[in-house]
Deep mutational scan, measured.
Amino acid sequence: DNLVIALHSYEPSHDGDLGFEKGEQLRILEQSGEWWKAQSLTTGQEGFIPFNFVAKA
Rank of each mutant, 00 (worst) to 15 (best):
D1F: 12
D1P: 09
N2T: 11
L3G: 02
L3Y: 10
L3I: 14
V4H: 08
I5H: 05
I5Q: 04
I5F: 09
A6G: 05
A6I: 04
A6Y: 02
H8G: 05
H8L: 12
H8I: 12
H8C: 15
S9V: 05
Y10N: 02
Y10L: 06
E11V: 14
E11L: 13
P12R: 06
P12G: 09
P12D: 04
S13G: 10
H14A: 11
H14V: 10
H14L: 08
H14Y: 07
D15C: 12
D15F: 12
D15T: 11
G16T: 09
G16M: 08
D17Q: 15
D17A: 14
D17V: 08
D17P: 03
L18Y: 03
L18K: 04
L18E: 02
G19K: 11
F20L: 05
F20Y: 03
F20C: 05
F20S: 00
E21F: 11
E21G: 08
E21M: 12
K22E: 10
G23P: 02
E24P: 00
E24H: 03
Q25M: 15
Q25V: 15
Q25L: 15
Q25H: 12
L26R: 00
L26K: 00
R27H: 07
L29N: 02
L29R: 03
E30D: 11
E30K: 07
Q31Y: 13
Q31I: 09
S32L: 12
S32Q: 12
S32F: 13
E34N: 13
W35P: 03
W35N: 06
W35I: 10
W36K: 01
W36R: 04
W36T: 07
K37N: 04
K37E: 03
K37Y: 15
A38W: 03
A38M: 04
Q39K: 11
Q39V: 14
S40R: 09
S40I: 06
S40W: 03
L41N: 04
T42Y: 07
T42G: 06
T43M: 02
G44H: 07
G44D: 04
E46F: 13
E46M: 15
E46C: 14
G47D: 01
G47Y: 05
G47R: 01
I49L: 03
I49C: 05
P50N: 07
P50A: 03
P50F: 07
F51S: 14
F51H: 13
F51V: 08
N52K: 09
F53I: 07
F53G: 04
F53K: 07
V54G: 02
V54T: 03
A55Y: 12
A55T: 14
K56P: 15
A57L: 15
A57N: 11
A57K: 10
A57Y: 15
